[in-house]
Amino acid sequence: MPIRVAVLVSGTGSLLQALLDAHGDGRLEAEVVVVGADNPSAQGLERAAAAGVPTFVHPFSKGGDRAAWDAELTRLVAEHDVELVVLAGFMKLVGPVFLARFGGRTINTHPALLPSFPGMHGPRDALEHGVKITGTTVFEVDAGVDTGRILAQEAVRVLPDDTVDSLHERIKVAERALLVHTVNELARQGDS
């Protein structure tokens, strides 16, 4: 039996699509059983619907009760009896209730080789620092920002004429493949 995965998105859902495509052609040893979004207009919701995957929307209102939001997010994900949660471009931090339930089973991607360049602007920061190699990281989510245990990394060379956008696009290609690979590795560990 493939492991059951929840994917949380905020935007286009290209990482989600990589998982759905890999499942569709037999390369993924997991099944996406629910997709949640904090943004009701996230394109990832459309991708999930097109694949027949159930969805939910759980926005956070500015000035809202973060603890209540976190508890409800936990409940919405837990309803689907998942073994792994993938934050795929999910632009909200999960809180202590979520981590108490899904800690050690929640992963995220980052467009840099952590611990270098954490935060929202990994490709920009890499260019500004003049590094010649950057990349992508898949890591276990903890209570910090991009501070969890590193599970996998893939290097991406910085080209002399790179812009933030051109570098980020190449990182995204590596990121999608690395996410599929890492989910498969975690699925195999769960079988042993």
Results as ranks from 00 to 15, higher is better:
S116W: 06
R101N: 09
L73T: 12
A42D: 06
S10H: 12
G95Q: 10
F139D: 01
E29M: 04
E79C: 05
S61R: 15
L178E: 01
H181I: 02
I150A: 03
D191S: 15
K62D: 06
A112Q: 07
R176A: 00
D38W: 05
F56D: 02
Q189A: 14
A71D: 14
Q189S: 15
D81M: 12
G24K: 14
A6P: 05
V85G: 04
V138I: 07
L8T: 08
S14P: 01
R157H: 13
G104D: 02
R47S: 01
D161Q: 12
L87S: 02
N108H: 08
V57H: 06
V33Q: 06
E128G: 00
P111M: 12
G135I: 03
V173M: 11
R157C: 04
P115G: 10
A126D: 02
L28V: 01
P123K: 11
L73M: 15
T55H: 10
L113I: 01
A187V: 04
D191L: 13
R157Q: 15
D165F: 09
I107W: 03
L99D: 04
V138L: 01
N108W: 04
R188M: 02
L167V: 00
L178G: 01
M1P: 02
A177H: 09
G104I: 01
V57M: 06
L16P: 00
R124W: 07
P160N: 13
L167N: 02
T182A: 03
R188C: 00
T163R: 12
R157T: 07
G36K: 14
L159W: 11
G26A: 10
G13W: 14
R27Q: 06
S10L: 06
V164E: 11
A37D: 08
A50F: 01
P96A: 15
G11H: 15
L179K: 07
G144L: 06
A67D: 14
A88R: 15
A48Q: 07
Q17Y: 08
E29G: 02
S14T: 13
T134K: 03
G13D: 08
Q153T: 12
S192N: 14
Q17W: 12
N184F: 05
P59V: 07
I150N: 13
I150C: 10
R149K: 15
K62L: 04
A155P: 05
V35C: 03
M1E: 11
E29P: 00
A22M: 09
H23V: 05
E140A: 10
S116A: 12
V85Y: 11
G26S: 11
L179G: 00
D125S: 11
V34W: 04
M1R: 15
S166N: 13
S116M: 08
H181K: 15
D125V: 03
G26P: 03
N108D: 02
R188K: 12
E79A: 13
G135S: 11
G11T: 08
I133T: 05
V5D: 04
P118M: 06
S192Q: 13
G122S: 13
T74A: 09
P59I: 12
D70G: 05
Q17C: 05
V183C: 06
A18Y: 08
L20M: 09
A155F: 08
F139K: 10
D191M: 10
